[in-house]
Nucleic acid binder design. Structure first.
Lengths: 336, 336
DNA sequence: ATGCGACATGAAAACGTTTACGTTGCCGTT
DNA sequence: AACGGCAACGTAAACGTTTTCATGTCGCAT
C-alpha cells in the first residue's frame, strides 16, 4: 500500500495524467467541472505529488540551503527564525547545515547540498573569494551573510556595525563624556574591526579634539575584565568605556566594581549586541541592538528574488540591516 | 552548459551508465581498472549525481525533517546543534521548519514535508494522538521530543524533568533546609508538571515530614517576582525556594533582595534549566542543567535506527536524557 | 572439445512528474 | 457547407538515476 500517484488520481477521476497535473497546478486548460472531479479524487486518495519526481522534471527543488558556522545561543536562534519565516512565506523549504568550524567541513557540507537546493545562504568565516570559487557552483544563487566581502561576485547582507558603533559614540558624547576608550575584539574579526572603525569615525566627526583610545580584547568576559583594570590605570582616567561586545562590557564593569568605581557616575559603559543578559546586570547595560532575525529574513528575501528571476539582483549587491541604540543605566542617561 | 550527468561520465569513460552507477556506489561488479577510469572521468567532469533522480528511483531522500515550535535562545540553538551533528554523522540532511505557534501551522508544515524526508523529528505542544494520526503518514519513522506522550504509536525522547527535580530537592534537603516551596510553571505545561511531580516525589521519599508547599507561576520572571513576594508573606517562612525554571528563580531572588532578605543565608533558591544568565546573577543560581544538544542527537540516533532498519525500534519506545545538578551560591552550599 | 559457473558489462525498464505536441469537438465566419 | 480558430484533453517524451536481466567472456573441470 504505497502512496497514491498521479496515475491513480487520473484513473479515479477518469481523465489523463496530464489533466490531473494541469488541474492541480494553476488549473489552466481544464474545465471547472473536470477540475472539481480531479480535486475530489485527489482528496479521496490523499494524493500528494512526489517531490523528487517533480524536482527531476522541473529542475527546481523549492528548497534553500543555509550553511552556518559554529554559532551559539540567541544569535543562531534568531537568525534561523528570520530565515525560516521568510522562506515559509515564499513556500520554500529550509535545509540547514550548521556548526562548521573549519573550512574543510564547510566545503564538504557545501558539496553535499549540490543539487538539493535552488539557492544558498552562506555565513562562514572561511568564505574568502578562493573558497567560494572552489566550492560553489557558480550558477547557484547565493547570498553571503556577515562575511568578509569576497570580490563582487556575490550578494551580501551584513549588520551595520559601523553605524551602530557611531550611535553609541554619539550617545556617550551627548552624555557629556569626552574621554572615551574602546575595547577591541579579536584582531581578525570583521564585526570587531567594523565597530572600531565606527568608533573612530564618530569621534573624528563629532569630537575631533578627543583622544582616540583603544585597549585590546577578544570578545571574552575575561578580556573585558583585564581591559577594565587597564582603564583604571590610565591617566588621565577615561570617563566612558565602549566595548566591542556586551560580554567584554560586562567583564569591564566587574573590574570597575571590584575597584570600587561607580558605574555610571564615575565611568560610563556601553556594549554591543544586546545579549539577553545585558538588561540583568547591575547596572543594566546600555548597548546596541541588532535585529538578527531581520538579517536572516532579509537575506532570504534577497535570495528569493535571485531565484525567482535570475539576474534581477546584480552580483555584488550589498545591503545592511540596521542597529539600534538601547539606553540603560550603565551609560548614565538621566543623571546630571 | 548544464551540469554533467551520468551519461556524460559514461561516454567519457567509454562504458555504460550502469557501470558508472556501480563504480560510484560501492564499486561492486566492476574491475579495478574500469572503476579507476570511471572515477577519473567523473572527477574531470565535476560530476555530482542528481539528487532528485536518485530519490525518485531509490525512494530514499537521505533527509530528515525537524518540526519545531516557537523556541527561543539557547534551547533552540543547542537542540539544532545536537540534531545536526548526529544527522551529519549518518550522512543525513536536515530539513528544518520552526516557529509553529498553533496546530494548524504545524499541520501545514508537516504536510509540506511529505515525501521530502525519510523520517521526522517532532516537537510540538499540539502533538496529541489525534493530531498525529491526522497529519502523519503512519509509515513515516518519527521520533517525538519532549512531547505529551501520545499513545504507544510513536517513539519519544524526553528530558528527565522528574529526575532533575528530585536532584534539586535532595540537594536542598542536604543543605539542611526543611521548609521547601515550589514555584509552579504554566498549568498545562508538561515540563512544569513533571518537575513538580519530581519535587513531590523527592519530598515524600526523603522528607515525609516536611510540608508540600507550592505557589503559582508561569515561567516568566515577573511571576517569579510575585511568587517571591508571596514567599515573604508565608508563616512560618520557607527556608528554600525551588522554582520550576531559572527565570522565575531569578525573579524570585529579585523580590527577596528588594525585601532585604539575604540569599542564601536566609532563604536558599534553586532553579531549573541552567540558562546562561544563571551564573551571572548575584548570587549565582544553583540549578539543574539538561543537555539539550544530547536530546537532539539522541533523538536523531533513534530516528536513524528506525530508518535504517524499520521495525528495529519498537513503537512506543521511551527514552530520557539526564539532568544534572549545578551547585552555585544561591543554595548556600559551603555555608554552615 | 564441451559445458558450466563466476564475473564484468550493457540494454532497458522503472520511478512519478511536467509539458510539447497532436487530436478532437465546438462555435462562428465566410 | 466548408473552413479556421480555440479550448479541452490525451499521448508520449523527457528528466537522471538504479537495478534487473540478458549477454558475453574467461577459466576450469569434465
Amino acid at each position: 500500500m504505497s502512496a497514491a500517484t498521479i496515475k491513480d488520481v487520473a484513473r479515479e477521476a477518469r481523465v489523463s495524467v496530464a489533466s490531473v497535473s494541469r488541474a492541480l497546478n494553476g488549473g489552466h486548460g481544464v474545465t471547472a467541472e473536470t477540475s472539481r472531479r480531479i480535486h475530489e479524487a485527489a482528496q479521496r486518495l490523499h494524493y500528494v505529488p512526489h517531490a523528487a519526481a517533480r524536482m527531476l522534471i522541473t529542475r527546481r527543488t523549492n528548497t534553500v540551503g543555509a550553511l552556518l558556522p559554529d554559532l551559539y545561543g540567541e544569535f543562531f536562534s534568531e537568525l534561523i527564525r528570520g530565515i525560516d519565516l521568510a522562506a515559509r512565506a515564499r513556500g520554500l523549504h529550509l535545509l540547514v547545515s550548521s556548526s562548521h568550524d573549519d573550512a574543510e567541513a564547510a566545503a564538504v557540507a557545501l558539496r553535499a547540498m549540490q543539487g538539493r537546493v535552488d539557492g544558498l545562504l552562506l555565513m562562514s568565516p572561511h568564505a574568502d573569494a578562493d573558497f567560494l570559487r572552489q566550492n560553489l557552483p557558480h550558477d547557484l544563487p547565493t547570498v553571503l551573510m556577515n562575511t568578509r566581502l569576497a570580490g563582487n561576485d556575490y550578494c551580501a547582507l551584513s549588520v551595520d556595525n559601523d553605524g551602530g558603533a557611531r550611535l553609541m559614540v554619539e550617545h556617550l558624547l551627548a552624555q557629556g563624556h569626552r574621554r572615551l576608550v574602546f575595547i577591541q575584539g579579536p584582531p581578525g574579526n570583521r564585526d570587531a574591526v567594523e565597530r572600531e572603525l565606527g568608533y573612530r569615525e564618530a569621534l573624528a566627526s563629532h569630537a575631533p579634539g578627543c583622544p582616540v583610545l583603544t585597549l585590546a580584547g577578544d570578545f571574552s568576559e575575561e578580556s573585558g575584565y583585564r581591559a577594565g583594570q587597564q582603564v583604571l590605570a590610565m591617566r588621565p582616567r577615561p570617563d566612558a568605556v565602549f566595548a566591542a561586545n556586551d560580554m567584554m562590557a560586562i567583564g569591564c564593569m566587574a573590574a570597575l566594581r571590584d575597584a570600587g568605581i561607580c558605574v555610571p557616575e564615575e565611568i560610563a559603559v556601553g556594549g554591543f549586541d544586546d545579549v539577553p543578559m545585558a538588561r540583568y546586570v547591575t547596572p543594566p547595560l546600555t548597548t546596541i541592538q541588532v535585529h538578527i532575525a531581520e538579517l536572516g529574513s532579509q537575506a532570504m528575501e534577497l535570495l528569493g528574488e535571485q531565484i525567482d528571476q535570475p539576474g534581477s539582483v546584480p552580483a555584488g549587491t550589498r545591503r545592511h540591516v540596521g542597529a539600534e541604540l538601547v539606553v540603560r543605566a550603565s551609560s548614565g542617561a538621566g543623571i546630571a
